[in-house]
Design a protein around this nucleic acid. Structure first.
Lengths: 172, 172
DNA sequence: CTTGTGAAACTAATGGTATTAGTTTACTAT
DNA sequence: ATAGTAAACTAATACCATTAGTTTCACAAG
């Protein structure tokens, strides 16, 4: 009954906290409401539906990913940090995927673009290369989620090697 | 009331048909039951739960993927067919991800391993390369699902280019 | 200081999901 | 013919998102 001054940012904070501490799948209206000690329908006074909350989560998650990556300037260091982020914060990483490439998404792409091996490329070629590299990173992460490369070979080593292959392929 | 001789394979067939014609998300107990003109609880006489049905779907979807790929013997032709399959049959492709790497999964990996560029590599290096290549393909597909590389640059061309980068990186 | 209005909470209900328990039907084998 | 079993059923539980309609509270105007 108190008015509790609920705001959009308190709601997304609660949602992100659930994604982080439990899982992205645990981000439900019921769980968000419980975390805020309110009833689910109250959330609809602040967001149109769950999807809009997730949209907002995506933007914030992308900002956190950008923060984690912003001081890295080689393909390998970016790749390592990117994978590290997805493993340390799986809920946040998953959240980050659901938002199209907005301002922050573009900033992340720029980090890759400014890398020594990519910086020199002709513009079209650069776009292809970034696509390929991000595909590789995301695929690497997502396949582990789904099946896990459960072979005997070390994962960190795999990442270093495939980044090496990609870089070598770019240098001509 | 008739006994209708329901079997596991009739259930998975119905489930796969739903995944193909509607979407993977539409694969629910209610929809499968409706497709077979029975009630949802009846399905539990044949499968422990929905997850086991999806597990079985994964094996069959992998077999179909293998069939689509089996006559291809270069990285580029495999990549093109792989992406083509995921676009023509998104429900099947999604289903194929939920099954660990069993017999069929291994057979698919072998198709990549037998490719000219990879065949000559030392064993460990080969595993890394295959991981990297499959990551790239899956990431390429999955990122389109999620955000879509909605840039101005052609997708088919992107695929050809990044496969080229990868191959060049492998050749030394 | 009272009143009234709008924002933001609530309760109750709808229709969707998976799953379990308990019951009945119908086929099959003695 | 009958008994047993496999496979269907109905009914119920516990989630999920969402909407409609109602109440409550805080603040602003008279």
């Amino acid at each position: 009954m108190p008015k509790m001054q609920l705001t959009q940012s308190k709601i997304t904070d609660a949602a992100l906290s659930i994604a982080e501490q439990q899982s992205y799948e645990a981000v439900t209206m019921a769980n968000i409401a419980r975390a805020l000690s309110i009833k689910p329908p109250s959330l609809y006074n602040h967001f149109k539906n769950l999807d809009e909350i997730k949209q907002e989560m995506a933007l914030i998650a992308q900002q956190k990913l950008y923060e984690a990556l912003k001081d890295k300037n080689t393909l390998l260091s970016l790749a390592k940090k990117y994978v590290d982020f997805s493993i340390s914060h799986p809920g946040l990483y998953t959240a980050s995927l659901r938002g199209g490439t907005g301002k922050t998404g573009h900033a992340i792409v720029q980090l890759f673009a400014n890398t020594p091996v990519l910086a020199g490329l002709e513009e079209k070629e650069k776009i292809h290369a970034i696509r390929g590299f991000r595909s590789m990173l995301h695929g690497f992460i997502d396949l582990q989620y789904h099946e896990g490369f459960k072979m005997n070979v070390n994962l960190e080593e795999s990442l270093v090697r495939i980044v090496g292959i990609f870089e070598r392929g770019l240098r001509r």
